[in-house]
Amino acid sequence: MSIMIDREKCIGCGKCAEVCPGNLIKLDGKAFIRYPKDCWGCTSCVKECKVNAVKFFLGADIGGMGSLVYTRQKGDILTWVIERPDGSVKEIDINRKESNRY
């Protein structure tokens, strides 16, 4: 369970590092994950990143196939973007003003 940070896209704002509940992300001008194996997979950092530099993936040891996931937010809509290794992309919208049915 971990994240990947795209250093080309990262603008070094530090929001991901600030919000990580495990203090696992550090900055050297840009963000990097210092302790990838210690990530809980909470995706807090993914939701903070405004430039979609932080992407989340499943480790191969728990069945991950290499998809990368990030989010976009517009008003109450949080869009989850899943980029599959074959290049196909799936988007799922969640309305934050609606509670879960389950």
Binding site: M1, S2, G22, P36, K37, D38, C39, W40, G41, L58, G59, A60, D61, I62
Partner: peptide, 8 residues
């Protein structure tokens, strides 16, 4: 999962 995903 004691390996890479130990914290999952």
């Amino acid at each position: 999962n004691p390996g890479f995903s130990r914290h999952k």
